[in-house]
């Protein structure tokens, strides 16, 4: 059963996980009743996703001024400071 052939919410959840959209993955997992009952691997993915979302939430609480530190640089060594 590949991602596309799972029931829709489970497929959406796996797709979201692959794209690192963890909160959306969690929402989709929670809509997936049948697959979660029958598949212990999916249940494990749900639980780890829940834990990760909780950790991210805690980081946001502890570190509210969370800034992305990537500096946008263009080829030729010119930095855009605008």
């Amino acid at each position: 059963m590949t991602v596309n052939r799972l029931e829709n919410p489970a497929a959406d959840a796996l797709r979201a996980l692959k794209e690192k959209r963890y909160e959306q993955a969690l929402e989709s997992f929670l809509e997936t009743d049948t697959a979660l009952k029958n598949d212990k691997d999916l249940r494990l993915l749900l639980q780890i996703t829940q834990l990760l979302v909780a950790v991210k939430s805690e980081i946001a609480t502890v570190e509210p001024d969370n800034e992305l530190l990537i500096e946008e640089v263009f080829s030729g060594g010119q930095t855009d400071y605008s």
């Binding site: 590949t2 796996l14 691997d41 494990l44 993915l45 780890i48 834990l51 990760l52 980081i59 502890v62």
Partner: peptide, 23 residues
């Protein structure tokens, strides 16, 4: 905060590998 970041990174890495394996 370092511990939380480390845990976050570990969990993300686990999920990436687990999804590949599951598929």
């Amino acid at each position: 905060i370092d511990t939380l970041r480390s845990l976050e990174s570990t969990l993300e890495s686990f999920l990436t590998r687990a999804v590949c394996l599951y598929e």
